[in-house]
């Protein structure tokens, strides 16, 4: 079973690694104010995180079920991508956890999956202030982006996110568009959102 997982990781590396790397970059930018040219804590980059996670599963596939540091095992019952993304999140969280910067918790798939829910440690008040300021600035910049100002469709989609209507099907119904069109608009909005975050992180 483990060997199968390792083979799967290596054989599908062309599809898996770009997605994981993209996820790691987005997570680093969105949650840890990372941008191109900057390092995460301990001098790590998103590529290092992806490599560490990939290696930890490779080590898990080669070892006989040992629970040791730096070794992860797939839960065959769960989606592999979900587990990998959970591990990326867990590894990055461990890097930035101020109280235990060198202590990545020994992640089993269960622990990783719990982490996916985006409920990290309780923020300290300074973090809260920073988050609120950051959120306000991001919201304003996205709202005032020229592409949104020039496109009624994008502006309407953005408004739906403000109204907490976030599912494709609901958005399609509200905007009287088909789901493919909504996906295309979401892709454009995602680009804008991502660019705004990266720009702020660079500043």
């Amino acid at each position: 079973m483990s060997d199968d997982h390792f083979r799967h990781l290596q054989e599908h590396a062309n599809e898996i690694i770009p997605i994981l790397y993209d996820y790691a970059r987005n997570l680093a930018a969105r949650k840890y104010h990372w941008c191109e040219g900057k390092s995460l804590p301990l001098g790590k980059s998103p590529e290092d995180i992806v490599t560490d996670v990939y290696v930890s599963y490779a080590r898990g596939a080669g070892s006989s079920g040992k629970r040791t540091k730096g070794v992860r095992h797939f839960d065959p019952e769960k989606d592999i991508m979900l587990q990998l993304k959970g591990s990326i999140k867990s590894a990055m969280w461990a890097l930035t956890d101020k109280s235990s910067a060198k202590k990545e918790f020994l992640a089993t798939s269960e622990e990783d999956l719990k982490e996916v829910e985006f409920a990290p440690t309780d923020p300290i008040p300074d973090d809260l202030v920073e988050s609120a300021d950051f959120a306000r600035t991001v919201s304003e910049r996205v709202r005032n982006d020229q592409r949104i100002k020039k496109s009624d469709d994008l502006a309407n989609l953005f408004m739906l996110f403000e109204l907490e209507i976030t599912e494709v099907a609901d958005q399609a119904r509200e905007l009287k568009r088909n789901p493919e069109e909504i996906c295309q608009l979401r892709y454009q909005l995602r680009q804008i959102y991502s660019e705004v975050i990266n720009e702020l992180n660079r500043q």
Binding site: N26, F134, V138, E162, T166, L189, S194
Partner: peptide, 11 residues
């Protein structure tokens, strides 16, 4: 809340 909603696009 808006950022949390937009995060769905990213993640």
């Amino acid at each position: 809340k808006l950022l949390k909603n937009l995060d769905k696009l990213l993640f």
